[in-house]
Design a protein around this nucleic acid. Structure first.
Length: 511
RNA sequence: GCGGGCGUAACUCAAUGGUAGAGUGUCAGCCUUCCAAGCUGAAUGUUGAGGGUUCGAGUCCCUUCGCCCGCUCCA
């Protein structure tokens, strides 16, 4: 029995595996770093989280700060898009530079920033330095018995990889510590069609947001929305992370739940300046409240406003950026990001308007203010897999007093199995009553029937699956048509009428 | 990518260089009127993978993959 009362990530991972929440992708082949599969319970849990997000942000969001019903519409865009999208968004240009690492000093340099002093004789080392930072170079050369005017200065990128063994890195003392230049782009590439050349190269999206931005104009033209309104999308994204770590927290394939909420440009519509801050704060606070509502209600969830200097380039001039963060066992006492809420200004829409060549013609027309502008955007961007991981960590509750040693305290709305139907013993007509109840309930709820083994083992199984309620058919059921309800968290039992079970679940689950 | 640690059944762990095992779980049967109880039986392993040393490798060596920790990275 596990008597540990603190939550350990190893124990949580073991339970996820044992009970079928999360497995390593392609495990029988040794797995693949940064990719994870959801088993039956995990897939159900994730769907519950995504359904809650869809319902609570698209179908029935809370009223906005203006007291009016929020306008929200969904889209579902492709993972592979025209590569120009990623040029416009800045994902291709900014991060495509080959980098060189120094094994000795752990330093990392851009290859195109490096210059090399090449001595006239082959048995002397080559001295590498960062362009513009040549302080102390002549001293270093002197030590090697060289003078600067004897050496040719070449670009690092012109030299052959075979020269690496003779090179002394900018911060190193001995040759041979530099690696070959490597591409450091976090986007996965692929090729469209049969020919694998530069022309056919495409990318797997690193964020779903750009699908929303590129279809912004079609949404406006077809769905009768006007600012302020939001477009929401959930879907897979891909980042070729250098170091996938911490279970599913940093995966290379992951699912996002993103909203782009479009509001008037405060510079154009003067009286709306305060609105930008108001909308930003409203989304920030409501997204935080939503995570608490789905089960992260304890001290482990925090809302953290970013400092000015950690803002992304597109958000520098904005109303702010904040993270909703969860204290995972592997980040404690620190926190890990679940969702970021950012005022992205109108950077993305302007970029796309410019790159597609139509420029200001693509400005949105605001009839109410009689003004053309590119709307600003508040972006609440959440990680579905990180949300699931947080739900798992939060639910994991060691309890030395119960036979399983642990139970999963999911909120009823998130629980993969809402209820179990258990005949106390497999005779005297109890299985038949249980089966009828099971057939009735499964039409509306995710329920399971379990007849095998003794009742204690079945309760224990349900504790590890996080099933909030167990209905048990016993001898008394046969005479008075009542069953017991066992509450997962309190272990308390009460009797309710067999024909009230469905209403009971409906009330507790909200289904 | 760098440095360190670790890979044996679904899980937790044994096995001096000499026949791969136990407990738990799972499954089947019996029993059982409320919390992994009891009895009987069954299935599950190319010891992460691939090489090498050896008469013989889970054990020693090399490579590789994966996991954990620390750096690095995270628009």
């Amino acid at each position: 029995m596990n008597t540990k009362l603190t939550k350990s990530m190893d124990d949580i991972t073991a339970l996820c595996r044992r009970r079928g929440f999360i497995w390593q992708s392609s495990e029988i082949y040794g797995g693949v770093n940064g990719f994870w599969d959801y088993g039956p319970l995990g897939a159900a849990l994730k769907k519950n989280l995504k359904d809650a997000w869809w319902t609570d942000t698209i179908l029935c969001p809370p009223d906005g700060p203006d007291g009016k019903p929020l306008q929200m519409v969904p889209v579902d865009t492709t993972i592979i898009m025209n590569p120009k999208v990623w040029v416009a968004s800045g994902h291709v240009g900014g991060f495509n530079d080959p980098m060189v690492d120094c094994r000795k000093t752990q330093a990392r340099y851009r290859a195109d920033h490096l210059k090399v002093y090449v001595p006239p004789v082959a048995d002397k080392p080559l001295l590498v330095f960062v362009e513009g930072q040549e302080v102390g170079i002549s001293k270093k050369l002197k030590k090697l018995g060289l003078a600067a005017d004897q050496c040719a200065v070449r670009d690092f990128t012109e030299l052959a990889p075979t020269d690496l063994a003779r090179m002394i890195g900018p911060d190193a003392d001995e040759p041979g510590s530099l690696t070959e230049p490597r591409q450091f782009n976090l986007m996965f590439t692929t090729h469209l069609g049969a020919v694998r050349d530069e022309e056919s190269q495409a990318y797997l999206r690193p964020e779903t947001a750009q699908g929303i931005f590129t279809q912004f104009w079609n949404v406006v033209d077809t769905s009768r929305v006007k600012t302020p309104f939001g477009i929401a999308q959930m879907g897979k994204s891909f980042r070729n992370e250098v170091t996938p770590r911490n279970f599913t927290f940093r995966s290379r394939e992951f699912e996002q739940m993103e909203i782009e909420f479009f509001i008037p440009d405060p510079d154009v519509v003067g009286e709306e300046i305060a609105q930008t801050r108001r909308w930003y704060a409203w989304w920030r606070d409501h997204r935080y409240a939503w995570w608490r509502k789905v089960g992260l209600a304890g001290d482990n969830l925090i809302l953290r406003e970013h400092d000015r200097d950690e803002l992304a380039h597109y958000a520098k001039d904005g109303a702010g950026t904040s993270d909703i963060e969860y204290r995972f066992p592997f980040t404690a006492p620190g926190f890990g990001e679940l969702e970021g809420v950012a005022h992205r200004t109108n950077f993305d829409l302007r970029q796309h308007a410019q790159h597609c060549g139509r420029g200001d013609k693509m400005r949105y027309f605001d009839q109410e203010h009689n003004a053309h502008y590119f709307p600003h955007v508040i972006e609440p961007s959440a990680g579905a897999d990180r949300g699931v991981l947080a739900l798992l960590c939060e639910a994991y509750t060691p309890d030395a007093d119960r036979p399983s040693g642990v139970y999963m305290k999911f909120s009823p709305r998130m629980a993969p199995i809402k209820a179990a139907i258990l005949p106390l013993v497999a005779k005297d007509g109890m299985p038949e009553v249980a089966e009828k109840l099971y057939r009735d309930l499964r039409r509306r709820f995710a329920v399971q029937i379990d007849i095998k083994q003794n009742i204690g083992k079945r309760y224990a199984r349900m504790d590890e699956a996080g099933t909030p309620y167990c209905f048990t058919i016993d001898g008394q059921t046969l005479s008075d048509q009542t069953v017991t309800v066992r509450d997962r968290d309190t272990l308390a039992q009460e009797r309710i009428a067999l024909d009230k079970v469905e209403a009971f679940l409906g009330e507790k689950i909200g289904g």
